[in-house]
Design a protein around this nucleic acid. Structure first.
Lengths: 213, 213, 213, 213
DNA sequence: CGGTAAGCGAGACGGTACGTCGTGTCTTTCG
DNA sequence: CGAAAGACACGACGTACCGTCTCGCTTACCG
């Protein structure tokens, strides 16, 4: 998997795409869209992917079921968009593409750990992973959203500090996969405490592994 | 989370347990039990946790639905037992508790990567993780089955080579979580190639991170 | 129920009526109106009242759904107008108001039988009766369209031949109800063969019953 | 249509047939069956065939929807059985097969008129006719239930009184169709008053028509 | 002739019911 | 008394239509 250098991970549209309207007919209701995503987030947060139902999402959003099915092909797609896109502010911290110092990585990982320590955040991520296990496209979106930015950041850091000779590409891959995977695995297995300390330990270990001898 | 040194990870019985020998009446049919677990494995392997149904398991096992519900409380429990216990041979390699050399860890990780590269193995692990996201007990079983042995192995290795001073306990935790989590995350996100090389890179990185300076 | 002697049964306008001339704006499209009625007739003819949908009517007529709802309040109303008014030629024969001879009645009944022997005609009448069972107004329209003309005809015949003393009003009612009802019942119960012979037998029986001793 | 002389019109089983049980498994619940038919009767009586829903029937019967669909193929079939079979006492009077006197026919017709004068009875018959318009089998059941007994009665009467020479078979058919059809048509078109007088007039007319000169 | 007031096609909307499927429980008969 | 068979109450599925509501157009009249 090549590293999509300056890739735009941010805005991933609904699967059905923007209304695309040629012209006639009533337009898609943005109000309904937001209500659905928000309802999905809420329901997934206090139950689980399996227990969430489209019916309940529609009801809570004050929307007909068909309005959900018109724009998303499956429960997994709704959850993916709801959890990945978030609502107003960003749900998940993004590694700054120009991260130069180790402290940037620590800050990011600590931030992420905070979100995952929160019950709501953890539940949402669990749901997202379950959704990914159902649908390969979502799986890819999940991977790209969390892992790819780390690649970019580490590469730009190395380039800046001329230490590139040391860390091979496969090491960077391994580092990113393990870091993200490690945190996600803790969430999936509900290991109680996802603390900044734990996240720091992971970052430290990985950076030490990547560092020149 | 303390490391349960000599813990028995191997045999995790059905939740209901064996029918408490000594009682009168017909005994639990081992044949039915195996048929159910095997059917569950098959169905989960070529669909997904969500799409697998107890009804289909019962049908394929040639068993009444009640016979499933008599012994397992939920779909998640059936899948957990089916996937974790495996059939005849062990489904998932176990780190030898007395692993002394780095090569032992490489061998284990490579072995695991092989299983996960296989479509059937990957599907089964995905199902297991989904099951874990539904049920905290299963989540714990999953974590213990894959992470704890690594802890034990690394600790015994350190004890043997008197390098214990270097690696802190939290580093060992981090290492185990990341290693297992990294591989599992690749499976969940369906990253195409889970190769021995990838696994080796992970192990190498982690060992370098753990090593004394 | 008094016999509305010279009643205009023929033209029954749309419920909403013509757009109240004098107003500005675009006029009702006669083309759309005909397309809708024709589509309704077609759809009802090869399915049933229950299975016909307004959506399908609009689609087949190449018309927006709203254009149907603007002019008719319900599916029953559309069907009633479509089936009762017919298209170009009259769908259902009308007893001539001045029927003087028995042969006129035989001719009418035979004609009606022919229409009902046709699959399309039978299906349309079935739909009309179903529509009537939903809506009392339509029920009245149906009754008046088929039964009242018979009343008128028989009365005028009696007046002409001075045999009025014999047949009481209630006998005439009974005769009309039974004649029309008998044929309609055959259609509703899908009795295979609605032949001129059958219709003749009915007319004969009724006339013999009405005749002076 | 031949006259099924001594036909058993009485018990027409559920379409799905009696459980037919070879052996094992839970038996069909008679309680549920009665509850469903009774609920269907009630709902159809105070709405219409179109407005009645299977969902409402199931709910009112305290039964799962599936239990309805397991035994009846369609709404029409449920209504047909509910209305034709009736509950405890017979819903619709049956002409005695051995009717010998005209007064027997008058009694029957008067009885039937009473049922149809009742709002509930009328609504149920309307629903039955609508059901028949959807399904040819039900149409036949409806025809046989109401018309055939009349055939039998008239024939037996004729045989007894040796007046057979006069009334031809086609006249008897016509008489039966018109009598039943006349009453049913009044119900369908909601003609307000279905009185014994009206029924008597019909019977009188028909008998006069059938009588020898 | 330009304004304004419908009607029109299209099609999304909040809903209700459909007929099917799966859940977990319950009878029933057999071994 | 376990196990197979299968009916049961329940509830969600994804679809089809309902009747209503925008949309961006035509028409047509009226000033």
């Amino acid at each position: 998997m090549p590293i999509p250098a300056g890739s735009e991970v941010t805005r991933i549209g609904p699967v059905g795409g923007v209304p695309e309207s040629g012209s006639s007919g009533r337009r898609r209701s943005e109000r309904a869209r937001q209500a659905i995503l928000s309802a999905a987030r809420d329901l997934v947060a206090d139950a689980s992917f399996e227990k969430m139902t489209i019916e309940a999402v529609a009801a809570r959003a004050g929307v007909g079921k068909q309005t959900v099915y018109r724009w998303w092909p499956s429960k997994a797609a709704v959850v993916a968009e709801a959890v990945l896109e978030g609502g107003e502010g960003d749900l998940w911290p993004l590694v700054p593409a120009s991260a130069l110092a180790n402290s940037d990585l620590h800050a990011w990982a600590g931030d992420l750990a905070d979100r995952l320590a929160d019950h709501r955040g953890a539940a949402m991520l669990r749901a997202l992973v379950s959704a990914a296990s159902e649908d390969a496209d979502i799986a890819k979106r999940l991977y790209d959203r969390f892992t790819a930015p780390f690649h970019t950041a580490v590469i730009s850091q190395i380039a800046a500090t001329r230490q590139g000779s040391v860390a091979s590409m496969s090491d960077i891959h391994a580092a990113a996969d393990m870091l993200v995977g490690g945190l996600v695995f803790l969430v999936m297995t509900r290991t109680e405490s996802i603390t900044r300390e734990r996240a720091d330990a992971m970052i430290r270990l990985v950076l030490r592994g990547l560092a020149p001898r």
